[in-house]
Design a protein around this nucleic acid. Sequence first.
DNA 1: GATGCTATTGCAACATGCTGCAACAACTGC
DNA 2: GCAGTTGTTGCAGCATGTTGCAATAGCATC
Lengths: 149, 149
Amino acid sequence: MGETQAAPEPWAEVPARLRARGLRWTPQRRTLLAVLAETRGHVTGAELVERCRTLDPATIPSTVYRTLDVLEDLGIVRHAHGLDGREEFHVLPAADHGHLSCSGCHGTWDVDADDAAALVAVLAERRGFRVDLSHLSVAGLCKGCASER
Amino acid sequence: MGETQAAPEPWAEVPARLRARGLRWTPQRRTLLAVLAETRGHVTGAELVERCRTLDPATIPSTVYRTLDVLEDLGIVRHAHGLDGREEFHVLPAADHGHLSCSGCHGTWDVDADDAAALVAVLAERRGFRVDLSHLSVAGLCKGCASER
DNA sequence: GATGCTATTGCAACATGCTGCAACAACTGC
DNA sequence: GCAGTTGTTGCAGCATGTTGCAATAGCATC
Ligand SMILES: [Mn+2]
Ligand SMILES: [Mn+2]
Ligand SMILES: [Zn+2]
Ligand SMILES: [Zn+2]
């Protein structure tokens, strides 16, 4: 396929990165990677399973979740948790960021490194704690929903 | 126990507070309240179901979870989510606080209002967002685990 | 290209919750 | 006390993952 790859797609390197760790490149992983390559922003695990099934109806959920664990180790995806605790994956996050969600309207926004800087600094100074920003998910009421009360 | 009990046990008032809202005081709710009255700190939902079963083996999980929802409305309990997204309830939180957990050793600590003040202020100023501190749960590496790498 | 090591898969079972619905039972008002 | 209203319960089924285990199949090596 004479496709021109605009950016240095990291997807092409995944098989080699897996093998370098003694891991394997399987058809099931190929399917998930194909799905992820077309995904932007945040997706739930269940959604990824569903999309894999459109490529390969024989997709097994546990295989997808286990592969997501591996990919998270490689830094290809990151996850946080929505208001209900459900996993939300972020594919190839351009910039590290946390998540903000409104329990009133269920809107979501990103918390960039700058927004979180103060909290990160406080916890680092006071406890030597290193915050995982990508896993951070802050709940509350957005401007609109807060004024409604 | 020379400590002054500022407020009388709130448990005694629960039946009345329920009825005031048109809700009901049932044996199942009595059981859960009995469990909560003996609980300090954080507990998972599953743990509460288990403890209810020791008082009443006929306890049904969905009833417990639905009652927890009601009690959260009343402000008797609050919940956040652990690293894995599982619910963790806090009974009668003395002071509003968030949660800090280490993904290395699974240790947990409280994030008090002062620790979180900077983040809360930033989100309020920049977006008019009102943070729900009790639902906040920050992940990362504690001092010990961070230095191990 | 065949071989062997072992990572990975598929499957079944389990864990933790949530939801729809019909039967039941607190409470209110008489 | 009794009846009616309607909030609750129990139950079955679903949603989202996780885990143990035996069978399978990558892939490094020859
Ligand atoms: Mn929540
Ligand atoms: Mn997590
Ligand atoms: Zn909102
Ligand atoms: Zn730690």
